[in-house]
Simulated scan of single mutants.
Amino acid sequence: MLFFEIALLLLAGFVSGAVNAVAGGGTFLTFGALTLVGLPPITANATSSIAQLPGYVTSTLAYTRELKVIGRTALPFLLVSAIGGLLGALLLLALDNPQFRAMVPWLLIAATGLFAAGPRIARALRARQLHAPRPLAWVIQFVVAIYGGFFGAGMGIMMLASLGLTEGEDFHRLNAIKTLLSVVIAIIAIAVFVKGGVIAWSEAAVMIAATALGGYSGVAAARRFPQSYVRGFVIAVGLFLTVYYVVTG
């Protein structure tokens, strides 16, 4: 790797860790940086999954108290998440890079739109006090997990919205379940990607270190900015990547 490429990956990883801690959406940054240094889209997507894992794990550890209270309630969600993440990752590897690349702009614009609408979706669910039977929530989580194993950007927003239908309105409870499910989906998908040989290990090593550092030390700096600014930055990155893939397609 060139010095510029290493610097770009370090910066993207660090900012991704901080952004995830404040507003989510770090996948846009890691996937985008890996794309810009020349990795094929499937490899960039798989390597980005590894880069995000440390943040998911540390967030889950921070919610140990909430997860102990949740207990067995999370087990069906864990099961469908594992199966869905496996299917999504296998589906990705069933494609070749030209096929996946053709899908990326549509995936990016959909994920960017969902990320932008995330707060409004959450408010609408709370205002209408919508509730669904748990089996329906398990089905929805299964679909979300397939998407998470396949691509992943915007997955957190999807899970918060779907979990809110059955698990109440307590943000910390929802976020605790979400982070735990994210770890499961990521680990399953990464195992598939490693076996499939689509990980760029040098780039992954650079990003893992930067993401972990960003998540730990970058939070304080990121919190100085209003969440709306952070979200706006992530949305701008999503739109830039969409245009990039359209123009270079």
Rank of each mutant, 00 (worst) to 15 (best):
L61K: 04
V139D: 01
R120Y: 12
V198A: 07
P133Q: 03
S162D: 08
L181E: 06
R134F: 12
V247A: 15
Y245T: 02
P98W: 07
L79F: 13
M155C: 07
P98K: 04
L114P: 00
P133L: 10
M158H: 05
A102I: 02
A220W: 14
L34F: 15
A191T: 12
T112L: 03
L34N: 12
W106T: 06
P41L: 11
L36I: 10
G154F: 00
L91W: 11
Q129V: 00
A210G: 02
V15H: 01
I188D: 04
L9R: 05
G85C: 01
A210D: 02
F151E: 08
L91P: 05
H131M: 09
R231I: 04
N20T: 09
E5N: 15
L92T: 03
Q129M: 07
V57Y: 00
A111H: 08
I185N: 02
P40N: 12
T242R: 07
Y63I: 00
L160M: 05
V57T: 06
G113W: 05
I235W: 08
F28N: 00
G215N: 06
V237K: 01
V219N: 02
L92H: 06
V143M: 11
R65W: 09
F115M: 12
P40Y: 11
K68Y: 05
A94K: 13
I235A: 07
N97H: 02
G13P: 05
T60W: 04
A7S: 15
T248P: 08
Y147F: 15
I6H: 04
L180W: 04
V143L: 10
V184M: 14
G238Y: 12
L241P: 01
F225R: 06
W106I: 09
A176F: 02
S81V: 09
A137C: 12
M1A: 15
A23N: 04
P40H: 09
V22I: 13
A191D: 07
I187H: 00
V247Y: 14
L79R: 12
L180V: 07
F233R: 00
F14S: 03
T179N: 15
L180M: 14
L86W: 13
L239I: 15
A122V: 14
T166G: 14
V104E: 00
L174H: 08
L91Y: 10
A186G: 10
F100G: 06
G164P: 05
T27F: 14
V198F: 10
A89N: 05
T30Q: 09
R173C: 10
Y216S: 14
A222S: 07
V237Q: 02
V80F: 10
H131S: 11
L174Y: 09
A132Q: 06
L90C: 08
A122G: 11
I190Q: 00
A110I: 13
V19Y: 06
G26I: 00
M158E: 01
G85V: 03
